[in-house]
Amino acid sequence: MIIYGHGVSPFVQRCFVVADMKGQFDAMTLALVPDGLHSDAHKAANPLGKIPYLEMADGSVLVESAAIAAYLDMVLDGPPLAGDSAEDRARVQMMAALVDGYFGRGFERLWPGRADEETVQRVVSDDMQKAMDALEHFASDTGFLVGNALTLADAALIPWLFHLRVFGKKVGLPDFGDRPKLAAWQANMSKQDVAKGAFERASTALRDMG
């Protein structure tokens, strides 16, 4: 299956982390968007002009990394990542939505060139703190975000570890701060191959950008 996008994007990496968690990393290919981001070819394939998008066999596309991740979890063989009980499934979704809607939405403004200095400082001291407080509040205390195994929730947050280390550090946001459950999560992820793999891939992709 072909995911279009760039390896630095945490939304792209989420898809590969899911495949990796399923033991199906080799089933996926990353392809650069034809003619580059926002090109006519990009918009012809995906009118939203965003990444990632997954090209299906019949030529249609799936967009929205959360939907793609859930889809991969269903169609790829391997351990289920969505949660076991109805309640756990809701928790997994909830955590992933908090990562996307609060953590990710805030952090995007910390990327180089996205916002002026004043906005960056406000995002760091306000928005990101709220986002991390929310994650800390709802996270499990097991070293995983939900339950005691890797789920789609972990897949959503794992790619951001690279961004915290590289871009967050530059603006005074190197990690999750004094939040014990998230600190335990980060420590646990440093031992997980799927997290190491995501970090290395993003690192390589950033280097290749020059």
Binding site: I68, A70, Y71, M74, A90, Q93, M94, A97, L98
Partner: peptide, 30 residues
Amino acid sequence: LIESQAIAEYFDAIFGGPTLLPDDPLERAK
């Protein structure tokens, strides 16, 4: 529980009646 999509899917899972999430993975993703 927070996040409307998580709550809605939870309702869909625990209550009887028509299901609002298709079983087919592609339709579900859509």
